[in-house]
Design a binder for these strands. Structure first.
Lengths: 209, 209
DNA sequence: TGTACATCAGTGAACGCGCGTTCACTGATGTAC
DNA sequence: TGTACATCAGTGAACGCGCGTTCACTGATGTAC
């Protein structure tokens, strides 16, 4: 009897939690949709509420403030690339730096909002320690994954120079080559990849020397 | 008599114009000072007015709106690097890509506000055609100066790949390696230069192959 | 089975604030006759 | 030389707006006895 009760409560509360999480997800999705079309500091709580089909005040049932909602959205977006890279590293003993670089470009070309948020946090200074921590974690994680690929490629000296150079170059590529009235998404994607390949090859041939 | 009058009017109005320009300059200086400590979209007309020692409404005697004032500040800041590079190119027949890259890093490390504005306009999409034009001009000008250095270095094939790669890498370096509580301005400057040199050397040795 | 109470997502009005910008004005300077 | 008028930088109050957030509330659902 007691056991049953506990088990019921447990599944019940799990279900409730899941429902609550789904509602949270709807709000974050709405926010992300808007971030795709506007700078994130121009996205208001009213905008997000409208997109999610609820009232602005309802958002505060799920997030204590705007900052937390933005942070949640950002971290859901960027953690994914880390996981992808982990999988790539786990599945292939030897992995091409070119494939890595291309995937980086693809990812941040497709999810430009996150790239813009990332750069914004870099540039405007995250002030909030929580945000700063998150950003540092992402950066450190990406850099150490780059390190790993470069080591497997046979680089022994100055690994950190190589990975810093690559990370900077890829970030710069996404930052400066962007869609304009006369350049389509497809054109931009392929130009970004072209330059990313070019740099990866430079690093590779320097490493082999 | 008529001549004298004209001459007087002329010098007079020149002086007046100069005074007016000086007043404009004070306002732009105040804005720039604030941009150094805050994201530029958080700098208000009241902030600028306070910094300049005038009232907010007085700014509108000199600039039609906030956008124009920001644009003025941005273009004064970035045109200078173009001039420096022009001088470097005019004075030295053969010029080191490393010197060029280092100067880029130095310039945008010292004038971080302009770098942040530049990236911001890249990322958030300048919408205003005037702003878009200005930004494209700066980008095109820097890229063609890079082209020039690379050609003088002896690169014949794929010059554009090299200059795009270099521009992207340098931009990325300034974007991602930034001051933190535990890294001083000096440390950042030297790390940025170190990675910039590393990439420049990669390009150079690839070109010489 | 029925009743009183608790929980909680969601609502819409409202608060207080800072923003860009406008407006009527002042006061200093120069100009015309 | 004196007087009327024009120009214009600058002032401070005000306007209208959108923002993040709060608040009193509703209504649905579950819980206790």
């Amino acid at each position: 009897m007691a056991e049953k009760k506990i088990r019921n409560e447990s599944t019940f509360s799990t279900l409730k939690k899941r429902e609550k999480d789904l509602r949270k997800q709807i709000i974050v999705d709405a926010a992300e949709k808007l971030f795709a079309s506007k700078p994130f500091h121009e996205v208001s709580m009213r905008d997000i509420a409208k997109e999610a089909g609820i009232s602005a005040s309802a958002i505060y049932r799920h997030f204590p403030d705007q900052k937390s909602l933005f942070l949640e959205s950002f971290s859901r977006g960027t953690i994914q690339l880390k996981h992808e890279f982990d999988t790539m590293l786990a599945n292939n003993k030897k992995i091409s730096i070119i494939a890595f670089a291309e995937r980086f470009i693809e990812y941040f070309t497709e999810k430009d909002q996150y790239f813009r948020m990332m750069i914004n946090f870099f540039l405007e200074g995250p002030v909030e320690p929580e945000m700063f921590q998150k950003l540092s974690d992402i950066e450190r994680s990406l850099l150490s994954q780059f390190d790993e690929v470069l080591i497997r490629m046979g680089i022994k000296k100055n690994v950190r120079y190589y990975s810093h150079a690559l990370f900077a170059a890829l970030t710069g590529i996404v930052a400066i080559f962007r869609s304009t009235p006369d350049k389509s998404y497809k054109q931009i994607m392929s130009h970004r990849k072209r330059i990313a390949r070019f740099i990866s090859l430079l690093l590779k041939s320097a490493a082999e020397k």
